[in-house]
Design a binder for these strands. Sequence first.
DNA 1: TTAATGAGTGAATATATTTTCATTATAAAA
DNA 2: TTTTATAATGAAAATATATTCACTCATTAA
Lengths: 207, 207
Amino acid sequence: MVKKGRRRLPRSEEQYEAMRIATKNKIHTAAIKLFAKKGFAATGVKDIAEEAGISIGLMYRHYKKKEDLFNELVTYAVEGLKRIIKKFQSNESPVELILQLTLEILNDLDNDDEYAYFQMLMNQSSTIENLSPQIQQLNMQSKAMFNQTARLIEKGQILDQFKKGDPMEMALFYFATIQGLTMMKITMNNEFITPSREIVTSFLIKD
Amino acid sequence: MVKKGRRRLPRSEEQYEAMRIATKNKIHTAAIKLFAKKGFAATGVKDIAEEAGISIGLMYRHYKKKEDLFNELVTYAVEGLKRIIKKFQSNESPVELILQLTLEILNDLDNDDEYAYFQMLMNQSSTIENLSPQIQQLNMQSKAMFNQTARLIEKGQILDQFKKGDPMEMALFYFATIQGLTMMKITMNNEFITPSREIVTSFLIKD
DNA sequence: TTAATGAGTGAATATATTTTCATTATAAAA
DNA sequence: TTTTATAATGAAAATATATTCACTCATTAA
C-alpha cells in the first residue's frame, strides 16, 4: 500500500538491511556477554551500548525496551535447545549422542564460543520475576531437554553403555556439571581449565 | 567515658542487644536468600525488608547501604571457606576429607540449608564491578581453597586413593559440579534431586 | 500515670537508570 | 552541489530505586 508512492532512496533497501543487521549483531554480541556475566538487572543499557560501540538512542531504535533485547536472546537459546532435543530423539547410539554433545560443549568452552554465554543466559532467566512468553518457552524446553536426556540415559543403560542409576538423577547431574563449568569459565576466564571429556562423563559412561 | 552520665533505660542493654540481633538475623536470612536467587542488583531493599518482615527504615538503621549488608554476608562466606581450608590442611586421609566435605554439602542441599545460598553468593560476588575489600578477600580465599584442594588430590593420588589426572583440573571440576548443583537447587527448588555422593565423586575416587 | 529511651516506621528526597525525541550525520541519486 | 531517506546521536523527561529523617511505638523505672 505504501509501496505505491515509492520514493528514491539514498541507499538501496539491501544496504539499509545490511546496516541494521550489522548493528543488531553488535548489540547481540555485547548484550549476551554482559547479561551472562552480570545478569539482566545489573546490566545497564548504557553498558550494552558502550560495549557494542553505539549510542543508547540506536539501541532503542532496534529494541523498544531492554527486556525486548533480552527476550530476543532467549529466543535464540530456545532454538539451540530445540536443536539438541531433536538430535537426542534420533536413533543414534545413546553413548555416541552424549559424547558428541559433551565434546561440542567442551570445545565451545575452550574456544570462548558464545555457547557459554547462552548457557548462562538460561540461568539468568530463572532469576527474573516477570516471566515473558519467551522465558516461559525456555523453561519448557529446558524441562523437555531434561526428560529427553533421562530417556536417552535409560536407553543407554539397557544397551549396557551407561552405568546404573536413576536416569533423572543422572541427567540432572550432567546438566549441573555443564552449568557449573560454564559458570566457572565465565567467572575465571583465562584461568579456567577445560576438563577432559573423560572426567565429565566418568559418572555416566562405562569404561 | 560516656558511662559517667548513665541514664535509666526502659529496657536493659541485654534486651536491646537481643532485639537488634533478632532483626539482624531476620535481615540476614531474607537477604542471603534474595541475593543468592536474584543477584545483588536485582534485589531491592524493599524486597529484603518485605521478606524480613520489617520496614525499610529499620534496615537502614542496621546498614548504611545495601552494599554494606551484602559485604557482611560475604564476610560470613569467607569464614566458611577458611574453616574448610583449615580442615583440608590437616593430616587426615585425603579421601576421607573429600568424602566428608562432599557428604556435608549434599546433606545441606538436601536439607535446604543456607549453604546453597552462600555458595551462590560467592558467584554473585564475581559479577560486581566495584570490588569491596570483603569481596577481594572472598576471591583470595576461593583461590586458596582451589590450591588446597588440588594439593589434597595430589596427596590422594600418591596414596592411590584417587584416579589419575591433573590435580588442578580435577579440583576445578569438583567445584564446578558443586557450583552447578547449587545453582540447580536454587532454580529448581522442589524438583531438584540431590545426587548420590557416588555420582559426585566418581570422577575422582577409585572404586 | 508519666517520662525517658531506643527500636521501628514510611513518606519525602536524592540518586540512578531507562526511555524518548528533536536533532545531526551519511551516502547516493539527481 | 542539493536533496532525500534512513541511520545514528545524546541531552532531557520519565521512571524506578536507594537513602534519609521526622515521626510513632513499646517498654519500664519512677
